[in-house]
Design a protein around this nucleic acid. Sequence first.
DNA 1: CGGTTTTCCGTACAGTGCACGGAAAGGAAG
DNA 2: CTTCCTTTCCGTGCACTGTACGGAAAACCG
Lengths: 223, 223
Amino acid sequence: MPESIWFRADDRPRRPRLTRERIVTAAVALLDAEGVAGFSMRALAARLRAGTMSLYEYVRSKEDVLDLALDEVIGEIEPAEAGPWRELLVRQLTQSRQVMRRHPWVPALTATRPLLGPNALARSRVFYSALADAGLSGATLVAAVGTLSSYVNGFVASENTWWDTVRTPEADAEIRGKVTRHLDDHVGELARHAQVDNGDFEAQFLLGLDLVLDGIATRLPPG
Amino acid sequence: MPESIWFRADDRPRRPRLTRERIVTAAVALLDAEGVAGFSMRALAARLRAGTMSLYEYVRSKEDVLDLALDEVIGEIEPAEAGPWRELLVRQLTQSRQVMRRHPWVPALTATRPLLGPNALARSRVFYSALADAGLSGATLVAAVGTLSSYVNGFVASENTWWDTVRTPEADAEIRGKVTRHLDDHVGELARHAQVDNGDFEAQFLLGLDLVLDGIATRLPPG
DNA sequence: CGGTTTTCCGTACAGTGCACGGAAAGGAAG
DNA sequence: CTTCCTTTCCGTGCACTGTACGGAAAACCG
């Protein structure tokens, strides 16, 4: 019985050391560790203990890897179940923010490339159907969805650059003070108040989100 | 009369061939022409007919140049005069969008760096004082301003990547079709409708903006 | 003139993405 | 087993990047 499973090591046609999946996982890890600036094909290959050019069997370019890594982490957002549209959207967007905080390189990438990966589209679909069920359609529906994703992207982008410039909450009080004074001089203490002193981004995020959702609510058909 | 103006070439202490201003203007032109990816210190120097390293007399790094270029084009937004808060904000944000369309590299940069330049702060101040005059304060004020600037950034970012992927309205009907089908398959025709067929970004922009402004309006004190 | 400071920039170095072409490994066929 | 083909791996090389360093040249002051 030479074709018995026990006499063959494995069924699958080939067992390459590298796979697209392994590459993408390593890319996400590398981006998390070094950021977009520290991400290079050589460093990625090193992480996989492979030669640099081996990557190009599975991927056409560095851009490809970034696209794949981006869609990969978008997949970490679990698509919300059914429920009232507002709670559903709040849950979904809160998760989006958390993913972008875990992977601070995301907002920079979403700003430059179209989100056409399967995970991105699946998440986008959740937004469309939630708001369509709530009664929106046509250009208003598109505007609402666009506004929501712009909001979360923009919020986390500025949250991230803020953490980047002060590094840690307690340390670097000097930089903190310099920026504070700078903002005070040029914008006034109104701005300084919450932008600098207040580290509670979570609350601030929900506050702005409520604003947008209230705006959307005014477009809903009565009932 | 040896000190007569006619016997001296010029009064000013030094007349270097390069100045920070000339560098920044050239940087903006180069970014407009080649985008962020095509922007290099060597290309910038060539445009100024100078050696590459000469730039470093006026600027510490490439990052510096990008910061300066960014604040420069933000300066193209003319700070609105007085007026009812809503019209004022619409005017201001419409202009922001136009500037970002003229300089499509802007959203990519704002996503990664803090906007601390004088022009950026002056524009930010317009937002704060308009909404403060309208009656907002504290965290709500900050949320409103943040939401508005997130919105315009996010909107134009996705508008730009859209133009990038289809290049011109009429040409490249093939790519257009491919993306259309892709979105159709994964998100449904609801999304496809305006995202692909509809090229009227201006109207779409104002629609989403109205949504946000309505949300802000609900936070205003009565009267 | 001499001395100092400012401006200019050539060279060099360590890094990048990736084209090319060859080596090696595995499977199929004779 | 041998031969051949396909897939996987990757070393080398090229054109290009940001910028450190140090020297030349020019412009000012005395």
